[in-house]
Simulated assay, not measured.
Amino acid sequence: MHARTEGRTWTGSGLKFAGLGHYYPRHLRRHDGEVTVGGRTYPPEAAAELGVRSLHVADEDETLEFMAVQAARNALENAGRSAADVDLVVLANWTDRQWIPEIAPGVAAELGAHGALAFDVCGACTGFVHGLQTAASFLTAHPGWKRAVVVAADRFTRRARPGTRGQLVFGDAAGAVVLEKGDPDDPSGLLDSVLDCDASEADTVAARAPEGFLRPKPELIDLAVRSSLRVADNVLDRNGLKTSDIDWLVPHPGNNAIHAGVRDGLDLPVEKFLTNFADRGNTGCASIPIALSEFTQSGVLKSGDLVLSTAVGSGWYYGGLLYRL
């Protein structure tokens, strides 16, 4: 059973990424030899096979709220904007969910965005797509609103079951985007978004109480590849584009097998497939915005580049974004 949300074409809305920011925890764990974590020692070839050379692990004082605030501050600084001018704060997160209060109001308060509506969204690893599409909808629905901060933050290391290879893949990070209404004739900005759900596959990946450790089923890789390709084909077709028309695919990275399946399915040159998976690991819903921030900062991503981002996550959600930087 597929629940289809046909998405929203944002072309001509004037919505653009005015600023990008990210935060990586202080502790960088390198996988350049034997790695002992969670009471298990992995040989050097284990990390090499999984494709993660290093990842960040948050200390106890680097809470989800703390990481989100740092990323949002960096995005606002990059945009040259004040938190006081923010109308909306949307926080995507799945690793540190709590009953009440939601985490986003605390993030908004710490930023100084005291007049902003603030709330959390989930969607697992599609959280950034969910948050950005939600923020875009709010900004277009409210004529007086101009600016949103969309933050995606996960402490994925806490969801890896000790003794499993997920300890060598899951990392912690936060990424943020300042989404702003500007000139509707500006060709840059958010062009399209889609978020779909296949409820029949909701249990393919789960993390349940009391420990909350990730429990994937064996069919996860095939489902992730199929879903990613479905999203990419949908967004490209909706916009009259071919794979060769995009400058970059910046996806939520899962693992090397998923990456290879997506590249092959799209017939995408490897040099157009852009992730920081090897150095940061799988950072959950933060993976797309941290890559955008990091690669824009380093000069790999440039103004005018046409980018497609795809993401899949437990639910079973699959979504995508098309935008021009």
Rank of each mutant, 00 (worst) to 15 (best):
S13L: 13
G21V: 08
R26I: 07
H27W: 13
P43L: 05
A46S: 14
L50N: 07
D59C: 06
E65Q: 14
E65I: 14
F66W: 15
Q70I: 00
N74F: 03
N74Y: 00
A75V: 11
A79Q: 06
A84P: 01
L88Y: 01
R97C: 08
W99R: 12
E102H: 14
I103M: 13
G106H: 11
A109P: 00
H114V: 12
G115L: 04
C122H: 07
A124K: 00
F128L: 06
F128M: 05
L132Q: 01
L139G: 03
A141S: 15
H142C: 10
R147I: 12
V149D: 04
A153G: 03
T157Q: 05
R161Q: 15
T164G: 09
G171P: 10
G175S: 09
G182H: 09
P184R: 09
D186Y: 04
D192F: 06
S193G: 15
D198M: 03
A199M: 12
A199N: 08
A207L: 13
R215A: 14
K217P: 00
E219P: 00
S228K: 05
V231Y: 08
G240E: 04
K242V: 07
T243L: 02
D245P: 02
I246G: 03
W248F: 14
L249N: 03
H252K: 06
G254M: 05
G254E: 07
N255I: 12
N256I: 09
H259L: 10
R263H: 01
G265Y: 04
L266Y: 04
D267K: 14
E271P: 06
L274Q: 09
N282C: 13
N282H: 15
S287Y: 01
I288G: 02
L292Q: 01
F295N: 14
T296F: 06
T296R: 13
L301S: 03
S309N: 08
T310F: 01
S314Q: 11
S314L: 03
